[in-house]
Amino acid sequence: MPRMPTMNVKQSVAHVVMRDPLGMHMRPAQLFSELATTFTSEIVVRCDTVKVDGKSIFEVLALAAECGAVITIEAKGDDADQATAALVELVENNFPEPTPVKDNKADGDTTG
C-alpha cells in the first residue's frame, strides 16, 4: 500500500491576543487545554519563542503568556480548522465558562 502523502494532512494557523489581565493563568490554561483535548488534531501553541503542546495544561501554563501577548495556534489534523476556530474564539471571548449557562445569570454576576 502506498504511504499516505503528508500533503493531505490538514493544517490551520491562527493568531490571537491575550486579553485576560492576568494572562494565561490557571483558569484560562485549564479551559484552553480542556477544549484542545476535545479535538483529534495535534495542537501547538506559541508565544514569542516558546512552543508548547496545547493539550497539556502544564505546558500551556508554562507559556506564561501575559496580557497583550500574541499567541499563535497551529492545528494539524482532520479537525484542524474547527480546532483553531474554537480556540481562537475561547481566547477572544476571554475564556467564558464552557458549559451552557444553566443558572439564572441575573442573580449571580451582577454584584457590586
Binding site: M26, R27, A29, Q30, S33, E34, T37, D53, K55, S56, I57, F58, E59
Partner: peptide, 16 residues
Amino acid sequence: GAIFTAHLQMVRDRKL
C-alpha cells in the same frame, strides 16, 4: 472550586 478543576486537569494531563 475552579482551582480544583485545574488540578483535575493536571492529574489527567495526557502529556504528563
